[in-house]
Design a binder for these strands. Structure first.
Lengths: 138, 138
DNA sequence: CCTAGAATTGGAATGATTCCAGATATCAAG
DNA sequence: CTTGATATCTGGAATCATTCCAATTCTAGG
């Protein structure tokens, strides 16, 4: 985890009134090191390699905290285990139904704006999720 | 359930090589009678009022069958229980985070087309989900 | 250095969903 | 209308991601 990343973690935690802990640093660095939308379980195992004592509950806690701070996004597809994504730029997700793998899809600049505009005005949107699924030709 | 609806059920089941059963008719009519995106549990209780013997497992089976036939859509938001929706027109969903209620949002004609076009070509889409969440001013 | 409040931990609890094996019902064919 | 092959239904057990809990440990401000 680079210095810059470390600072954005510290900064985001402070802004949300949360403490910096070794566990949070470890989990955050796991997310940054391999940006492949891991499940909680995957994050848990990767974190254990660096910090053998962490508990699953803590990994859940850390991830929830990060989502609350706006440091990472949750990615839910159907009923599958939740995945986590440190890509903060506006993007959609594509899930390959054959491998289960999730890909980030960049959105054109005005897309979210355009989408929001289709909502009747009594709906005040806080978040928009766009997800595709299908097959990815390799 | 009107005659027309009954026929589309029968027809869709036949097309998929499935049988028509009283339970499937009951569950389907429950979905059509109140188009409010019920959870499996809600569908289960409503169905019991008409057919006291149905089992929860059967309600799960029926709903899964309908999804397979293209008669209804699943609506997943975060980790909440799956909801079911008999609206087949292309539309997005808005979830009111205060009540948990889900609303259908009609999509302009070319919207899905436009969205599909942002995918790099190795991605072959089968389905697109668009979901908003936020507060609904009453 | 102290301490209040927050975070971590392991294990138990929850709850939606799936699985199972036996009983029953559908429908195509005769 | 009857029959048989096969799909469906049922209740209960099993699964599994996630949440909860109470006890312990840690963080950071003063």
């Amino acid at each position: 985890m680079g210095k810059h990343d470390h600072e954005s973690l510290t900064e985001a935690l402070r802004r949300a009134g949360q403490k910096l802990t070794p566990q949070r640093e470890a989990v955050y660095s796991v997310l940054l090191d391999k940006r492949d939308h891991p499940t909680v379980d995957e994050v848990f195992h990767r974190t254990r390699e660096r910090m053998p004592g962490v508990s699953l509950a803590t990994v859940y806690n850390c991830l929830e905290t990060f989502v609350g701070c706006g440091l990472v996004r949750q990615v839910n597809h159907e009923r599958e285990p939740t995945r986590y994504c440190p890509n903060l730029a506006p993007h959609a997700h594509f899930r390959d139904q054959e491998t289960g793998r999730v890909y980030d899809i960049d959105l054109p600049p005005r897309m979210l704006e355009t989408l929001r505009r289709i909502l009747p005005e009594e709906f005040q949107t806080e978040a928009v999720e766009i997800s595709f699924h299908g097959k990815r030709r390799r």
